[in-house]
Write a protein that binds this DNA or RNA. Structure first.
Lengths: 185, 185
DNA sequence: TGTTAATTTAGTAGCAGGTGATAATAATGA
DNA sequence: TCATTATTATCACCTGCTACTAAATTAACA
């Protein structure tokens, strides 16, 4: 084993470690970190079977897209886009106000919002106005069912109602007005 | 509103929907799907604040790499219980609708709700009614400041207003009516 | 009907972050 | 010392954009 190939092997290890810590370094950045030329990095990547930046990023992104939302999210069961939709959410202790048996309303809100934007078929922040009524507080370990229904459509806005039920009892109701104008700050 | 801009608005919606289904389409693919030129797609993306493919992919990938988001939590800076409160939240890509520069409204709602319940000095889900107006969509990398103010108190309910600002501009406003009755389902 | 202004298309140059191939330049070990 | 191996430098090319300009199209209005 020559000294030179030992050096290279060490570099290979450092390369893997670097990419492990920050997977989205370009060849140029890697070259700088390891004090070698970009050409060498490319040879090393080829030798180690490491794909180029774009493919690395893409594969990670696809993983992300593949699985459902990780956050306490409702599962959408049925959608008739532009008409109505149904989703389900199981509550648990982690969703409650600390030290209580009361689910934070943000979870109900999020459940409703997700269903509404999906029902509308838009996905951006088109929500304009919402009026919300929490009829009954909900505890953990409940199966919540949300129903949305498009009530009216105008030139560039529409109105959607959502109700969330727990055991046939309506516990939350909201009216959303969405519109099509999207301008971020 | 002219017919042409209606056509465009419809195309914008279709564009959002397309990207919702498959967030990693190139401008060329989008153009083909919508039967317009690539130039038009670019204009639409600009108008809708949708970043280019690479950035969309990168942001998703970063989301994946980033720690499990606990639910973008606002930091409460100052509270005068029963009177008013201030909190701060920094937005990022992980809070946006996938493939866009628009923060999901649930984050604004949650920020507001947290501040309101803290301001009220109650800790359970006492929210009864909320009316919400999203004035301007917000993008990532913004510093949001929420201010709450107790407006009135009655026997067992009170009214609290919250506004969220981005660079002095009000982007969200809500009125909450809280009450003291807590009965879980 | 013709004019105007919004909308869409087309085409240019340039950039980032790559790929491949080829040639030049070390460093090493027999 | 010379052949071998490792590294670097260069060149042309690719994709998916941005940024810009110019032309073509078309709805709306007078």
């Amino acid at each position: 084993m020559s000294r030179r190939s030992e050096v290279r092997q060490k570099r290979h290890e450092e390369l893997l470690q670097l990419l492990n810590e920050s997977p989205f370094l370009t060849d140029g950045e890697l070259a700088e970190h390891l004090n070698v030329s970009i050409a060498t990095i490319r040879l090393d990547r080829t030798a180690l079977n490491i794909p180029e930046l774009r493919e690395r990023v893409l594969s990670v992104a696809h993983e992300q897209t593949a699985e459902p939302h990780s956050m306490g999210n409702a599962e959408i069961m049925d959608i008739e886009e532009g008409i109505r939709g149904i989703s389900v959410l199981y509550t648990d202790e982690s969703m409650c106000f600390p030290g209580t048996n009361v689910v934070r309303s943000q979870y109900l809100y999020t459940m409703a919002e997700d269903l509404v934007t999906t029902t509308a078929g838009f996905r951006a922040a088109l929500i304009n106005v919402a009026s919300i009524k929490y009829k009954v507080p909900v505890g953990p370990n409940c199966k919540l069912i949300a129903r949305s229904e498009l009530k009216s459509v105008r030139k560039d806005s529409c109105v959607i109602w959502v109700s969330i039920y727990c055991e046939r009892k309506e516990i939350f109701r909201a009216k959303y007005i969405l519109n099509g104008e999207v301008k971020t700050v």
